[in-house]
Amino acid sequence: MTHADAKLRVSGLNAAYGQALILTDVALEVGAGEVTALLGRNGAGKSTTFRAILGLIANRSGKVIFNGEDVSALATYDIARRGLGYVPEDRRIFSDLTVEENLLVGRQAPRAGAPTWTLERLFKIFPNLRELRGRPGGRMSGGEQQMLTIARTLMGNPSLVLLDEPSEGLAPKIVEQMIEAIRDMKREGLSLLVSEQNLHFARLVADRAYVIEKGRIRFAGTMAEFDARPDVRDAYLAL
């Protein structure tokens, strides 16, 4: 399943916090225009994988190829500048900044090979944000904040977005909006790597899936292949 045109190719990724090794030899790929899910229980290493890819963990080794370029030695901002977007799990809204200012922080120049976003286009996908433009980020509901973090990342016109547990803690109605938003992004030609615990959510958006447990990749395949393997689900995902 090696794609010649893989957007992102990670191999041999190890990461540690202090002395504690968290990721061991993680390998995964995200094909261009594809939505790939990274499934795993609490503490399996999903967020750590994302942070390691972005160079946010000092103590890491391995290879990260993005758009055919080795970015594993680059600084975080440099990786982001190449069009790799990141939406963290805890949202990390700048609470003192207004919605519009939050979006401004994420803004980057348009990029060839990636959809270009403007405030207007973002407000089409996330209509709530339009009315909240002037409100401080700290005074928004959880769902609104989740929309804002995604919009903020899109302002950088990324070609690939790492989306960490987008459905976590959201009301069912908002989760539906989120599914729509992910599909919209895919339609625009974005590639996505989405980490999830919610299998139902993953099925609705993803083309392929990886299962991670204790910092190791335990399964790789299409969503259909995943559904044919209840043993994988029971061993690594059931609570």
């Binding site: 972005l54 946010l56 600084a75 975080t76 901002y77 982001a80 500048r81 990141y86 963290p88 990390r92 700048f94 609470s95 003192d96 900044l97 200012e101 939050n102 922080v105 994420g106 980057q108 903020r152 990342t153 950088g156």
Partner: peptide, 14 residues
Amino acid sequence: RAATQDREMVAALG
């Protein structure tokens, strides 16, 4: 102002 609040996130935004 953003960096005052969360430097890491600012870096992740490029």
